[in-house]
Every structure is written in C-alpha cells, then in structure tokens.
Design a protein around this nucleic acid. Structure first.
Lengths: 140, 140
DNA sequence: TGAATTTGCTTTCCAAGTCAACTAAATTCA
DNA sequence: TGAATTTAGTTGACTTGGAAAGCAAATTCA
C-alpha cells in the first residue's frame, strides 16, 4: 500500500524538480560563501576546458538563455573573472576568456563543488549514482 | 574511451540541472498556452487533494520559498483561481482554497502535464522511468 | 498574568531572469 | 555587386525571486 501524501508524487517532472531544488540549495549555500553563483562556476569550467567557445555555445553548456548569459558575463567582467574577445573569424562572435584571477577562483570553487557532489553520490548505493547520471542524461 | 566535450559532464549536480532544465522548458511552453505557471499548477493540485494546507506546508510541497508563494498566491487570487481563508485554530495561518474556476482550470492543465509526463516517460525503457523516480526521491 | 520569545505569513528592497526589439556582421541570391 | 535575409549577441521594459525586516498571533515561563 502506497500512502501518498503529496498529490504531485507520481509525476516524474515533480521528482526531478524536487531533487534539483534540494541539490541546488545546498550547492548555492556553499558557493555563496565563496561569493559566486553556480552558473558562474559552470561558465568558468567551460572556459577552462580549452576550446574557444562563443557565447551561444557557452549558453548551451552552462544551461543559460543568451540574455541571462550576457548579463552574468557583464558582472563577471566587472569582478575581473573573465574578459570578452571578439572572434577573428566572425566579428559578431565573442570568445570569452578566463583571467588569471578567474582561473584561481575557479580552482577554489571546484573544490567545493566536488565535495558537494561527493556528498550527493554518497546518498546512493555503490552503482546507483552512475546509474542515475546515465538515466538523467537520456533526457531530451 | 570517453570523449567528453563538456567538462561539466561528470557532475551529477550538472546532469540533474540539465535534465531539469530540459523538462521544465517543455512543460513551461505547454502551460504558457494555458496561461499558467508550473508552480501555480502545483499549488492547485495540492489544494485539490483535500487536506487543508497552511502556506508553510504548501510552500514545501510546491517547492517554493514562502515569499515566492505569497506573491504567486496574490496573482492567483487576482486571477480568481484561489482565495485565502484565515484558519480558525490559529489565526496566523492561512488556508488557501480553490475557487470553482480554479478547479476547472486545474483539470484542464492536468491533462497537459500528464501528457508531457507520459512523453517524458517514453524516453525510457519500460522499468527505467520508475527506477529514475525512485533514485530521485532518495535525494536529500 | 504579562513580558519575552517563537511562529506564520507578508512586505520591502534589490538582484536576476524573460521576452521582444535592436544593432551589426555575415551570408544568400537575383 | 548589393538588397534581403539570417545569425550572434546585447539591451530595455517588465516580471519574478530572494534575503531580511516587519507585523501580528500564539506560546513560553517567571
């Protein structure tokens, strides 16, 4: 017998939202102590990976809509974490680059994120973390 | 060999955010045609379930912070979907009630959400949808 | 009892996000 | 070529969300 208190409990989309909210809240609190936003960290990780990314590509990878990315990048520029560079091939495109400060900050923040991710993975039996990840990445 | 293009791909928290974003976007588009917000639908489902809920309980179930709930409820009241009722036992508490219009609108929206949820479940092999849900609800 | 504290919800102020319009560069094709 | 279209990114007006303060009812306990 299933005693379902919350009428939303049957919806996969709700379970996803609830899990996302829980994880995001924890991570947000932790990164706030570093004075940084989750999305800003994502951007910095993407930039650190090497391949030059346009704003459009970056928006997809960092899970932001273009206007939100533009504005967040404005803030990051004024905090000295990144700077814009006009792409040579296509003058409309922007290549975003990490500053030295940005790289240092990213490495600090990465510690926190990985610790949080480890704590999250510990909520699962051995193989289940990987399984969850695999299932999640099947979506859309 | 794993060719990982996106440096964030190893993080469970990122996989969760990406999946959540994809699902939310689809659902948002669909509900926007009905002129309603996902959170408003959640609230209405909770209210329809019978047990009288305080704003605090509702906030938890609908995955909203109290101020966000207060404001959304303001809008829903002015759209005639719900109304506030001061609880008799504790005069500080609010019991939110669905109006008839609210109930009708909820039933319409429910169709859409369930259709969307069905489409989502179809992205998985038979048992995997339930498995994913089970894993997600283990979180926090 | 009644002062002090806690609890439930809302409000205020500000930061951040969305949609749609805009600018400018690149591409298409007549 | 050059006018028309498409693409990349940003901006502006508006809406929404969050943190912290505020208000009022309930509870605690001296």
């Amino acid at each position: 017998m299933t005693t379902e208190l919350n009428p939303l409990g049957n919806h996969l989309s709700y379970a996803l939202a609830a899990a996302h909210r829980a994880v995001t809240q924890l991570l947000t609190v932790r990164l706030k102590k570093q004075g940084i936003q989750i999305e800003a960290w994502r951007i910095m990780e993407c930039l650190d990976a090497g391949t030059k990314l346009s704003m459009g590509e970056l928006a997809k990878q960092a899970l932001l809509n273009p206007p939100a990315l533009s504005k967040l990048v404005d803030r990051m520029v004024s905090n000295g974490l990144v700077h814009r560079q006009i792409a040579t091939a296509d003058q409309r495109q922007i290549n975003l680059l990490l500053t030295n400060l940005g790289r240092r900050r990213m490495l600090q923040v990465r510690q926190d994120v990985e610790e949080e991710d480890r704590a999250l993975a510990e909520q699962f039996d051995t193989k289940d973390g990987a399984l969850l990840m695999q299932l999640l990445s099947q979506i859309s």
